[in-house]
Design a protein around this nucleic acid. Structure first.
Lengths: 224, 224
DNA sequence: TCAATAGTGTCTGTTAGACATTATGGA
DNA sequence: TCCATAATGTCTAACAGACACTATTGA
């Protein structure tokens, strides 16, 4: 910010949508904001020499204590209603936080299931919706699912993670065939017995190949 | 902007990357900026009650005289070097402008082939690169190519447009089969003879179906 | 033993991509 | 006539999705 005077309303905020898997659902981290007595996305205004990415990372670390497994800017959002800080626009980031390790520090933060959020300001609702769809659109472009799991995992766990992030069911045999073709995982010697059925072999993330030329002229176009 | 005083540096700018097909290449619209005596992306700062989208549209219309065929926000960009206006961040939009109808108004604007741009500020270079890759990534999700062509066009012209926007060659037979399967065009009675070979039938854009559920578990993943 | 889950083999329909062939005009 | 381009048919390999089957544990 380039004003040395009082403290004008900040020109823009950085808001972070932090998502984590929780009991087969996506959960979102919110913070309790005292002046307005309501829940909001964690946010801040960048300091004088901060980058947008750097600020977003700081916000995420402050809230969870660790670096997110993945974070990406999803855009700038502005409507005619200013942010609670008075800022005209908010630059929003979506982030994924590993399973389990995501205990909110202090009492000001809490996780909410994505389908049962408390009331949020309208702009923040839009940001949350947009973040979830960006995550779902880009999941297959980035091997993020692996970073949300422990280093060893079963293929069923991996598939469940993909299903959670993509928001749809996947076909078991096809999923495994595609995994094998992509050379992304390798089996370990360990097996894990979990409840009733046959024990599952544990795998680890071990990418071997890069993508070859993907096939395809597709016209899966949206309607005009 | 919420200050009633002098005129502090604007908090952020809206910058628009306008692209158009030109002789089998993409071309970019730049404006000559007098104080700095250099080329830059067309930009402005939003007025008090403007939205980001509205501001971007105004910039595009002012520069070309018409509405762009497509426009989408691609994100907020900030580095430690301020915009020439003094703004910390720029909210960037990518836009596509129809073939031909894109004569720049006045003398302050000019089209440049995307591979032969004049020197730009570093942030603007990043914005341009990012815009082009966003266009290439999202082309297959939106039937924009049709809006860049006249109402009647040959299938070869359409394919060339797709190749230009996607930045890669497509297979002719597959392209046509996919087009037919998508019910996006219908033939007219007219034919056009162009140079040597057999005349081509003209088609018009006439979408009939919506997309059905697309198949696929794909692991065309990027390397870590 | 039964129930539940892991993992695999096979078949089928779809389709991208390659190749070849026909069609039709201009030079 | 030859050449260039349009348009189409056929074959093949890849692959998603369905289904069935085996394997291996706990209850």
């Amino acid at each position: 910010m380039s004003s040395e005077q009082k403290a004008p309303p900040p020109p823009y905020t950085v808001d972070v949508v932090m998502l984590t898997p929780q009991e087969d659902e996506l959960a979102l981290l919110l913070q309790w904001t005292s002046p307005s007595d309501s829940w909001s996305l964690p946010w801040d205004t960048p300091g004088e020499h901060d980058t947008l990415d750097g600020t977003a990372n700081q916000i995420a670390e402050r809230a969870t204590g660790t670096s997110p497994a993945w974070i990406e800017q999803i855009g700038a959002f502005g409507d005619r209603i200013p942010h609670s800080s008075g800022a005209d626009i908010s630059v929003a980031f979506a982030a994924l936080v590993p399973l389990g390790t995501s205990a909110p520090a202090g009492g000001r933060f809490a996780w909410f299931k994505i389908d049962a959020l408390p009331p949020l300001a309208e702009r923040q609702q839009v940001i949350v919706q947009h973040s979830v769809s960006v995550v779902r659109d880009r999941m297959d472009l980035s091997p993020v699912a692996f970073r949300l799991l422990p280093t060893s995992f079963t293929l069923s766990e991996l598939q469940q993670m993909y299903e959670l992030l993509l928001g749809k069911r996947l076909h078991k045999a096809s999923f495994r065939r595609a995994l094998q073709a992509a050379w992304l995982v390798e089996p370990t010697d360990e097996w894990r017995s979990e409840g009733r059925g046959r024990p599952a072999q544990l795998y680890r993330y071990a990418p071997k190949k890069r993508r070859k030329g993907r096939r395809g002229v597709r016209f899966d176009l949206l309607a005009p």
